[in-house]
Amino acid sequence: MQLEIRPDPAEVGRARRWARSRLAGSGIGADEGLAETLILLVSELVTNAVVHTGCPAVVRLSLPCTAAEQATVRLEVADASGRAPVPRCVDGDATGGRGLALVDGLADRWGWSPEGAGKRIWCELDRCAAKGREGAASLGGGASAFEGYEGLAYEAV
């Protein structure tokens, strides 16, 4: 399943609605921690694509065929920008710059790879691990493609 998005911030809401409808069709309830976390990840990765690249992008969502307990959900956002994603350390007053830190904290795994002239950023959520999550607000220990960012601080406001 994929959704083409324009480089317009309004596309972030459309991508969230699209992902919610795909989740509902796969038997993953909207109130499950996995669904809440995935929607937040869609928001972050699509926002990064439309705000930082100025290029159209494609959102792909791979969902399990059944609601098996150990299924993995994979989200990918591919864009035409060759710029690598770079996690940033921002001060407490900054209004942005925390997206990749959130992805790192919420996803079980994530990374990126070059794709043609652009790139593909991906993240995965394991459904069995999601059962222990308290929704999108719980920042866990996801595995990052960038080593050395374990010291990032998270602040809930």
Rank of each mutant, 00 (worst) to 15 (best):
G141Y: 02
I28D: 01
L23R: 01
R17V: 15
G105T: 05
A68V: 15
D91N: 12
K131V: 13
E124K: 07
G118V: 03
W110C: 05
K119D: 01
T53E: 06
V12K: 03
L23T: 02
R74A: 12
V90R: 07
R60Y: 05
V77T: 00
A24T: 09
M1L: 13
T47D: 09
E155A: 14
V42M: 06
V12S: 10
R127W: 02
R16N: 09
L152Y: 07
R17Q: 14
C55Y: 13
D31V: 06
V46D: 06
G96C: 14
F146M: 10
P64C: 07
G151I: 01
A136Y: 10
P87A: 09
W110L: 04
A130H: 03
V103A: 00
A156T: 12
A153L: 14
G141K: 10
A129F: 08
A30F: 04
R17F: 12
E11Q: 13
E134C: 12
A94W: 00
G105W: 00
A49Q: 02
W112D: 06
T72G: 14
E36D: 11
S21W: 05
S26D: 05
L3G: 07
G118D: 00
D31Y: 06
R98D: 07
D31W: 02
D31S: 12
R17A: 15
G54Y: 00
E150A: 15
A156P: 07
E134G: 12
T66R: 15
S21C: 10
P7E: 04
S138F: 04
D104K: 07
R98I: 08
R14K: 15
V77C: 01
D8P: 01
A117R: 14
E155R: 11
V12T: 11
V46F: 08
R6F: 10
A129L: 11
E124D: 13
G111V: 05
G33N: 07
Y149G: 13
S26N: 05
V51L: 13
A84V: 12
P114K: 08
T47G: 14
V77I: 03
G13Q: 11
L152N: 02
L125F: 06
A68S: 15
A80M: 09
I5V: 14
P114D: 06
C128R: 12
L40S: 13
G135K: 00
C123L: 15
E44L: 03
G151K: 07
R88H: 10
A78H: 09
G82N: 08
